[in-house]
Design a protein around this nucleic acid. Sequence first.
DNA 1: TCCCCCTAAGTTAGCGCTAACAATTAGTTT
DNA 2: AAACTAATTGTTAGCGCTAACTTAGGGGGA
Lengths: 341, 341
Amino acid sequence: MSVGSETRRPPVMEDVARLAGVSHQTVSRVLNAHPNVSPQTRERVEKAIGELGYRRNTAARSLVTRRSQTIGVLGSDMSHYGPANTLLGVQQAARDKGYFVSVASLSEVTPAAIKDALEYFMMQSVDGIVVIVPHEAMFESLSTISMAVPLVAVGFGVDERLSVAAVNQRMGASLAVQHLVDLGHTAIAHVSGPPDWIDAAARIDGWRRTLAQAELSDSVLIRGNWSAESGYRAGLELAAVGNVTALFAANDQMALGALRAFSEAGLRVPQDISLVGYDDQPEAAYLVPPLTTVNQGFKELGARCMQMLLFDMANGHSGASSVVNPRLVVRSTTAPPRAAR
Amino acid sequence: MSVGSETRRPPVMEDVARLAGVSHQTVSRVLNAHPNVSPQTRERVEKAIGELGYRRNTAARSLVTRRSQTIGVLGSDMSHYGPANTLLGVQQAARDKGYFVSVASLSEVTPAAIKDALEYFMMQSVDGIVVIVPHEAMFESLSTISMAVPLVAVGFGVDERLSVAAVNQRMGASLAVQHLVDLGHTAIAHVSGPPDWIDAAARIDGWRRTLAQAELSDSVLIRGNWSAESGYRAGLELAAVGNVTALFAANDQMALGALRAFSEAGLRVPQDISLVGYDDQPEAAYLVPPLTTVNQGFKELGARCMQMLLFDMANGHSGASSVVNPRLVVRSTTAPPRAAR
DNA sequence: TCCCCCTAAGTTAGCGCTAACAATTAGTTT
DNA sequence: AAACTAATTGTTAGCGCTAACTTAGGGGGA
């Protein structure tokens, strides 16, 4: 197996043309799937391309077409499960659509850093930009920037100034909480992520609304920070209070922490207290007991994202939005409360 | 704040030249920091560039220089902590050095998928490639491929056919195990990662060697799969056997699982059993008790990687290797065994 | 039969930039 | 003062490709 070529100079279109006995333009036509090429000619050209191992020069192509076939992905917090997987989803979708993906990740979400990264993309003359920066601050920056290329923001709320692809976090939270309500729980706590993360805010909101709809109290909200440790602390706190029968954690790591706290406090899951996580990380299914959680379709999200970006690239800024619905994965950490048994 | 331009056609070098009253070549010279430009001219040109918001066209530049200023990063298992952070490190280092980063990630490590991804990079005419695919299979593929551009593999063992930047996993494992030996432990178990991961293999090796050097038995090796669940199982298994006083887990997640198993089995950490993890994930410090673990400098690794790649890009394939040393982070899960007290 | 049109090719002119060479100026040297 | 240097700037020729225009052959309708 060999990729690349050992020869001096890589073959150019003219070389292919010569070998196939046509003009370089005909080669170009074959490559671009133009209709007016006879089947025989097409075949001869394709054969020559194969023989020479010819590959189009992207730079030359970009120069004349004014498109780079590259989309820029601006990210942050890439060591977190959500952003990392969103990136993966976007990246795969982009490659499927024939686009190159250039990544820049922010180590801090400040206007200066954002501007830098966008400059970097403009320098590369990307055809479009996907933003995976799940912080409120990004939204503010974004709505004040006027971009020269289409931009799709992942995960933001719907806003006419921005094209958005998002997982419906509110719905995810509702799914989780409604599941607990349906089981008969009436005291349902929530450990949230840091509230400057938009996903965290949306999940809090979903939790609150669902409780309101069921006419239940939303008094027990504990602020976590996505870490297992904060979930553990929340779990201990709840165990001490003793009057909640269910906990909705804003991610699986915090759920993991809570699980351990409950076990330490002598609370059995799900007999004494039910628990729902969020993310459906691979380990969720292997916790003991296996965690009921909410699965977000990151692949699907990435695909939607590219779809919107391509649309905006073709038709100008749309300000549209595409929402992916998460789904509840019921495993073994949820059951009816003791009173309802 | 505004990035990009609202005008019809973005300014080109000629526009800058006209405004500054020089030739386009002089503009090019200023941009490329050529020595033979008078300070006054330079200043005038820079002013014109600023006024017009001029940015060089990368495609045109690439076409003539035959370099794309882009490096391709080939990755896999990007939802794992190690690979994700290595990518981050490489990405930051590349950007610092003025390179664009194009990412392709493998969903499966097969020769066909690898070939596809490399083709994709060649199509983009990247200047260099960084491979972050920590599987033995990748190594085999890589050594049979003859590349047209320099390639640096991250994490592999030293091999003259490949330029390599790696964290010294054997040393990391040694650090962990020696720490346990120094505390007086004599029965030290290991939960490993899947053995087709090179890091997992190296850590097993480091564990084994260090034990051999201390003339201790390496009989208790449990195969994990990086997941918390596998760590949990291993923990239960060890608790049942009852004769080991320390466990070295090949990552923090497995350590987390083990921690829980020990707690369930009534083994106190570190009083009854010591535990060392690997990775120093952010949550490690917040586990209860805080986890002793091994920190790998991913930033440093990324920087070394780029350094090597730039070297190879300038001087041709070197087959050199650069090794980053991990460091032990002692927290609260390790203590002398009861017998040694 | 002539003319028009449609198809399948070829020719030409850049896209915006850099490298190589040519030209101009000023500063020395003989 | 002629001639030679070095520093600075301008001019020219592509890099490899696509878009727009041009040309060469066939059909078919009058």
